[in-house]
Design a protein around this nucleic acid. Sequence first.
DNA 1: CGTAAGGTTGAATTTGCTCAATCTCGGTGG
DNA 2: CCACCGAGATTGAGCAAATTCAACCTTACG
Lengths: 237, 237
Amino acid sequence: MPTSHHVVPAFARSPRLKLDGADPLGAAVVRELSVDARQEFVLQDDAPQMAHLVLEGLGCRHRILADGRRQITAIQVPGDVCDLEAAMAGRADKGLMTLTRCILGEIPRARLDDVDGIDPGVRRALWRQTLRDQAIAREWLVGLGRRDARERLAHLLCETGWRLRRVGLGENDGFGLNLTQAEFADILGLSAVHVNRIMQQMRQEGLIEVGTKTVRVVSRERLERAAGFDPTYLDLP
Amino acid sequence: MPTSHHVVPAFARSPRLKLDGADPLGAAVVRELSVDARQEFVLQDDAPQMAHLVLEGLGCRHRILADGRRQITAIQVPGDVCDLEAAMAGRADKGLMTLTRCILGEIPRARLDDVDGIDPGVRRALWRQTLRDQAIAREWLVGLGRRDARERLAHLLCETGWRLRRVGLGENDGFGLNLTQAEFADILGLSAVHVNRIMQQMRQEGLIEVGTKTVRVVSRERLERAAGFDPTYLDLP
DNA sequence: CGTAAGGTTGAATTTGCTCAATCTCGGTGG
DNA sequence: CCACCGAGATTGAGCAAATTCAACCTTACG
């Protein structure tokens, strides 16, 4: 186990962004794990016993092709279970890593696995997240397939802002995302250079503020218009 | 209900591609529906009572942006439940349509919805399909984000061939896909013109055969190499 | 035989990429 | 305190991939 994985006793939780107290998944966490930024975590080998809930920080799922091209296929915000496949199929997920320093909550597979006797709240939460993840993935497909660079970046910022606000994080109008331009590129399917140029253009339009490893939304409303953003896909009953 | 929806009595099933006889989902079908090619089916309004299993033909999920750009985000082959959200969240899925003429099996929501007393085989089948759908969506994201047109088309053909073979359809080495070049374009995030050019190039390389509304794989092995295709993401335990 | 949907082609253009150099700035060792 | 270092950001030039537009061809089919 790399030194970047620090086990934090559950009774001594570090200051972290809070989840909804009634969250049945949060209640199932048995201990916490602190992971540095940019760490792959193929946390277990063949038969994982734990699934992991993001408590703080941003995680992602990515894939690197043989020649080095990389694509991030999902980002995980606090409240998301990042390795559902581990829980539901008993197989370790590949290609998970942290984007920022994260605190992960370990949830025993037995609490999630879909057998009788599972907390119905947990079951519902897992399906709800699964459906939301799928909706987000579909939206990303639309973006990568049919939106240009500007729309893509705008849309990503809108979506991520929405997701963070949904769990009580991030301010209303100007929230920030602490990612490298190269990371944005791997999310958006663009080159880092092009991301830089698009960001400058959007900065000059007064849509965003750009700093090192930071992008801030200035006007949420104008950005949503630029993105053609419609958040209905993000809320499920 | 449009005239293109023909109800077929369950006892008089039309000749169709067969599913695995032990399929718990197939066993839950209570009646069949025949739908013409290219029909949107927002089959119900607010509270759908039925989910739908593809028995024959190809379905898809797509999205059309305000200015007409269109992206297909998933294709459904026989054996796939196409509107899981209907079943799990009680909300009608939007953006589903047939690509070819389809026969759909209706499954009452009560047989799928995740409450106690559900057939564990059904439950497992739903999770397995969900995880597979997610894996496919991720793979499409990698393609749209990081693969060029040639690789994308090759990969799509490999993937679809694999999926069809998995349910006992499509020949081993040369299987066909009866889609318009414009439909390929909307799947691959390309223009129809460019799809045409790529197909010609690949035809000349001896990878595929191209006809009107048809593409056939000539050499599966060479195509998989061209695509960088690795099918592990398609099989789950 | 006429028509329409789908396929093909070329030219001009756009979008985004690669490569390579340069800049900035926070942290670090001396 | 300060020069240095490296990650990340920025810039320009040239290039490649894919698009748009518009015309034209082919074929199935009524």
